[in-house]
Amino acid sequence: MPKIVTRYTVTEDAERIDRIARDLYGSERGGSAEALINANRRLSGTMKDPSGDVAFGTILSVPEAPVAPDETPVRPWE
């Protein structure tokens, strides 16, 4: 279980989880959106609208930023 470092309250109507991740971590890549989803398993039909967006007023648990994998290119021919 990831360490929860803070809480975040959704302040816009129907906010997308990838946009929340970008606001919190600076990017929605590198597993940041997935980390938010995993830390907030309680997100269900009552907290999301039918499109999957997170409803206004939802309080999310925010885990530590995920560690991005080493993206050094592998060049087997060298």
Rank of each mutant, 00 (worst) to 15 (best):
M1H: 00
M1A: 13
M1D: 14
M1F: 02
P2R: 02
P2K: 05
K3Y: 07
I4F: 01
I4R: 01
T6E: 10
R7P: 10
R7V: 13
Y8R: 00
T9K: 15
V10A: 00
T11D: 12
T11C: 03
E12K: 02
D13P: 08
D13Y: 08
D13A: 13
D13E: 15
D13H: 14
A14K: 15
E15S: 09
R16F: 13
D18R: 00
D18C: 02
D18V: 02
D18Q: 04
D18M: 00
I20D: 00
A21M: 09
D23Y: 06
L24W: 07
Y25E: 09
Y25D: 14
S27I: 07
S27A: 15
E28P: 04
E28F: 11
R29N: 05
R29P: 03
G30H: 01
G30L: 00
G31T: 02
G31F: 10
S32M: 07
S32L: 09
E34I: 12
E34K: 10
E34Q: 14
E34A: 06
E34C: 02
E34S: 11
A35P: 10
L36A: 03
I37R: 02
N38S: 03
A39H: 05
A39I: 07
A39N: 05
N40C: 09
N40E: 09
R41Q: 15
M47T: 13
M47Y: 12
K48D: 09
D49P: 04
D49L: 01
D49S: 11
P50L: 04
S51Y: 08
D53Q: 15
V54G: 05
A55C: 13
F56A: 08
F56E: 14
F56D: 06
G57N: 13
G57Y: 14
G57D: 06
I59M: 10
I59S: 08
I59N: 06
S61G: 07
S61Q: 03
S61P: 08
S61Y: 07
S61A: 11
P63G: 01
E64Y: 06
A65P: 11
P66R: 08
P66F: 00
P66E: 08
A68G: 09
A68T: 10
A68S: 04
A68I: 06
P69S: 03
P69D: 10
P69T: 11
D70H: 11
E71M: 10
T72K: 09
P73R: 06
P73H: 05
V74I: 14
V74E: 14
R75E: 10
R75P: 07
R75F: 12
R75A: 07
R75Q: 13
P76D: 14
W77R: 15
W77S: 13
W77V: 05
E78Y: 11
E78S: 14
